[in-house]
Design a protein around this nucleic acid. Structure first.
Lengths: 201, 201, 201, 201
DNA sequence: AATGAATGAGCGTTCATTCAT
DNA sequence: CATGAATGAACGCTCATTCAT
């Protein structure tokens, strides 16, 4: 789907619709968000959304990509710039939680989509891949730390699950308690996983 | 809710419907599960479910109660029987993951329900309370360990979020990779959180 | 439908069901009254009503008959005992409104049924007959008064419609304003129709 | 409700649906009229009605408004133009019955809606207000006649109930006997209520 | 004589999608 | 490009009725 194949105005419409979709999903919840409501928010007709995205699934996929792009842009450079795996792990947690604080709506929308838009056991759902990538990213950092001798000898996948699980648990908390102190949480999680992963004396 | 108020045959039907609902939700996902599909699985008419449960909400509530009963029965006694907070934490993780291994479908269904059955941003959803209780249970164990001197001085809520987040991340993994080694995972998580919480030298 | 064909216990059950049906219809309104609710009120099973009455329509018909019997028993003797048509007309109005005061629930139920349970234009509805009889009863009194020279020369049907219409309008008023002074109303209607029907000088 | 807010084609569809709803209610009765049947009459899909009216209640409200507009347009100017209360009362009866003759179906539909659309005994129902307004309109004419000395001294509410009751009784009669002579009826009712209300010598 | 579990048709409503304009 | 009217299938739910017990 090369961007050259789309006119400028078309690209603008798509961006507008994606933004309104994020707004609607984050505000109303995935189940309560219909194309009609998104259209209403965007002040366009429902048919227009189908025209630009073909189907609801495609729109949702576009939303996911957009948020992922936003998150990656914000987080990845900082992480890969770290000199040590320990620093990278710390910055991973810090940037993730910072993203949640700064881009609450896109994050909430993403969480809504991931938890709601999965298929059955057979069809894997379009966003599990995204999650697998996230885990592998963490595993890379962990493997780095083990290789460099910073980290103790643990199972990569298990530890990645724990770290990612902790991060994924935050939006739900945030939803329930908007006053949640994300900075405190970031410090505590950093400490926790730093201790938990470092080479034991 | 005296058991005398329901016939034997009614109780049997309810159990059958609950089982089929668990099956449907775990297999198809919450959003794709309709009363009609549950009825189809149970080989009864859709109206029959309404007859026995009054509303979809009541059925879902019954499913939640059933799984919660199952889980509590299996896990709580073992946890409270531990002599130290460190043991309690270990057993908490072990029994939770053991439950996932033995009751995969009920567990998946429960997770589906809890993550899906929430309203918009404002309305808290009927099962967020359940989750809060789970966090407080962990916090109790953590506070116990801090008081006894087993654990270091960390923020209770942040640490509870990390632990619960790790546990909650497992079903999604399990769904994606049914061969996941839960025993290994239990050992690794136990080690991780034992190290992370214990009093530092 | 001779009463001999029914056992004593069956007759009692029917009476009980009819009473509960009246209660339900008067309290909840016709549209909100289901056989299940009547059964609940009567503390019997829904199937039992079908057993005793065959169908809902039959039950409704039985309710109508019962209320009509009650009304006729209370009103007819007093009316036919009057020496003049003028007195008969007065007593007709008085007894009708007195019945409404004393048997509010049966009356309300009857009104609910008559206004709700009509078929289409083609099928006349089972209770229009009842209404036609009521009109003819009034016409008899009016014809009597015209023959005796008490009443002026008016169209029987038109005048009967006016009188019956006035009477039928009362329950709706009563429903809206339960404090309605039925005795005042009876006096006023008597005066009005006495003046309107008497031979003009 | 500015007319600019609706397309021409939308307005046409709405009008068509309203007309079919009137037809269905007048023909089948309120209780037997479903959106599906109205849609069938209008040869559109059931979803289309929801599209244009949002809910059944809104459609019913639109029907009521339409008929009320029709009736008011036809009757009010003639009534208020009369020089005396006696004339006004006569014209009130004449225009009401003339309306029934000319707009039988809308009138029947309106009566069906008003008598059916009420909740239980406690909830007043959305159209009882309409009826109260009708009574108050009559009371105004009666009060006028009493003040001018044309009418005798009677209770306003009781007399208004009688007059409105007589008028409201007509549609039911019309339903049962479509050949009913409305002009005769109008003359007779006029005479009746003129005699009944005029100052007695 | 009575039960109550079960049914199936029907209800009002929602919504992704289509298509003539 | 964009519209918005229209669709049709699916939803949760109600209810008179049936029938094995």
């Amino acid at each position: 789907m090369p961007s050259e194949s789309r006119t400028f105005i078309e690209e603008a419409r798509r961006a507008q619709i994606i933004e309104c979709a994020i707004d609607a999903i984050a505000t109303l919840g995935y189940a309560q968000t219909s194309l009609a409501k998104i259209a209403q928010l965007a002040k366009i007709s429902p048919g227009s959304i189908s025209y630009h995205f073909g189907s609801k699934d495609e729109l949702i996929q576009a939303v996911v990509s957009e948020v992922a792009r936003l998150a990656t842009e914000m987080m990845e450079p900082a992480i890969v710039a770290q000199p040590t795996a320990t620093d990278a792990l710390r910055v991973y947690l810090e940037t993730n939680l910072a993203f949640m604080g700064r881009h609450r709506k896109p994050l909430l929308a993403l969480v809504e989509i991931i938890t709601h838009a999965r298929g059955g056991t057979d069809t894997p759902g379009p966003y599990t891949a995204q999650h697998e990538i996230a885990l592998q990213d963490i595993e890379k950092v962990l493997a780095w730390g083990q290789k460099s001798g910073e980290f103790r000898d643990f199972d990569l996948r298990s530890t990645a699950i724990a770290i990612r699980g902790a991060v994924d648990a935050v939006p739900a908390q945030l939803l329930q308690n908007p006053e949640l102190d994300l900075e405190l949480l970031a410090r505590e999680l950093t400490t926790l996983f730093t201790i938990a992963t470092r080479r034991q004396p």
